[in-house]
C-alpha cells in the first residue's frame, strides 16, 4: 500500500502540486495522466523520494518514506525513468546487473546472475548481453533499463509489497514494445506489486490501467476506474480538446479520437 497525503510542493512562488492525496494498492496498475507541466512527473519524483522537500506525507506500508533507509527500500522498489544519461561504455549485462546492486555487497551471487539472465530474456535481449550499451538504439537501451529494474525487484519479499514506479517509460519505443512493456508492467502489478506509471497516451491508459489519476495544474481532477476518469468532458476540461468516443465491438474498452 502506498499512501500519498496532502502533498503540496512549490518551486519559488510557483505551485507545482496543491494538496494531492491519493493511495495506490498492490495488485493493480495505476496510471497518472495529465497535460505537460501538470505536476504528474513531480508527483512521481516525490513518491520515489527524489524530491524530498515538500509538505505532506508519503507512506510505504504505513511507514513514512523519510524514515526509510535508502538501501532497504531499493530492494523492494524500482523506478524506471524516461531516459538514462548513461554515456560510458558498459556491457548490457553489467547495466542489468546494476539492478541487483542493492542485493549484494561486492560480488554478485549465482542467483543475481541468473535473475539478470532471465530479465534480459524476458525483454528479448538475451543475445545482447555482451554488447556495448552505447551501441544500442534508443528503444533497445530502454529495454535494457526495463530488464534492470525488473531484476531489481525480481523476487517477491516476504510479508512486504513490491513497488514499481515508471515515468513515461514508453516514449522511445515502437508500437510493439509499447504494448509489450505495458503487458509486462501489468503482469508485475498483478504479482502483488504497487505499480504507478506516468503516461501520455490516454488510449493506452484505457486499455491497460486498473485505475487512472487525472492531474491538472497540480490538483487532482479525477481518480478512479479508467472509463470513469477518461471522459470527453474531463478531456475537454484538461486538454481543451474536443474528443469523441469510439466503441469498437471487438474490444472491451472505448477509444478516443480528437476531433
Amino acid at each position: 500500500m502506498l499512501e500519498v497525503k496532502d502533498i503540496s510542493y512549490s518551486i519559488g512562488k510557483q505551485k507545482i502540486l496543491n494538496n494531492v492525496s491519493v493511495s495506490f494498492e498492490p495488485g493493480k496498475l495505476a496510471m497518472i495522466i495529465g497535460p505537460n507541466g501538470s505536476g504528474k512527473s513531480t508527483l512521481l519524483k516525490i513518491i520515489s523520494n527524489e524530491i524530498n522537500k515538500y509538505y505532506g506525507s508519503v507512506r510505504y506500508d504505513k511507514i513514512l518514506l523519510t524514515k526509510k533507509d535508502k538501501r532497504t527500500i531499493s530492494k523492494v522498489r524500482a523506478v524506471l525513468s524516461q531516459e538514462s544519461e548513461l554515456s560510458f561504455p558498459l556491457s548490457v549485462e553489467e547495466v542489468v546487473m546494476m539492478g541487483r546492486y542493492p542485493h549484494f555487497d561486492f560480488k554478485p551471487a549465482a542467483k543475481d546472475m541468473d535473475i539478470c539472465k532471465q530479465a534480459l530474456k524476458r525483454m528479448n535481449m538475451a543475445d545482447f548481453s555482451e554488447r556495448n550499451y552505447l551501441t544500442l538504439s534508443g528503444g533497445e537501451k530502454q529495454r535494457v533499463h526495463f530488464a534492470r529494474v525488473m531484476s531489481q525487484i525480481w523476487e517477491q519479499p516476504k510479508d512486504k509489497y513490491r513497488y514499481f514506479l515508471l515515468d513515461e517509460p514508453i516514449a522511445s519505443l515502437d508500437l510493439n514494445y509499447q504494448h509489450e512493456f505495458l503487458r509486462i508492467t501489468k503482469e508485475i502489478a498483478k504479482q502483488n506489486t504497487v505499480t504507478v506509471a506516468v503516461i501520455h497516451d490516454i488510449n493506452l491508459a484505457l486499455q491497460y490501467a486498473d485505475s487512472v489519476l487525472l492531474i491538472n495544474n497540480g490538483s487532482v481532477i479525477a481518480n478512479g476506474p479508467p472509463s470513469e476518469v477518461i471522459t470527453a468532458d474531463n478531456l475537454f476540461k484538461v486538454y481543451g480538446l474536443k474528443c469523441r468516443v469510439i466503441k469498437d465491438p471487438g474490444s472491451s474498452f472505448p477509444h478516443f479520437v480528437v476531433e
Partner: peptide, 23 residues
C-alpha cells in the same frame, strides 16, 4: 575499490543511483 559498485551506479545519473539505494 569499496565504492566501485556505487560509482558504477552513479554512471546512470544521480537520481537513478539513488533509486538503487545509494546515498
Amino acid at each position: 575499490l569499496r565504492y566501485s559498485k556505487a560509482l558504477n551506479a552513479l554512471l546512470l545519473g544521480e537520481s537513478e543511483a539513488g533509486y538503487l539505494g545509494i546515498d
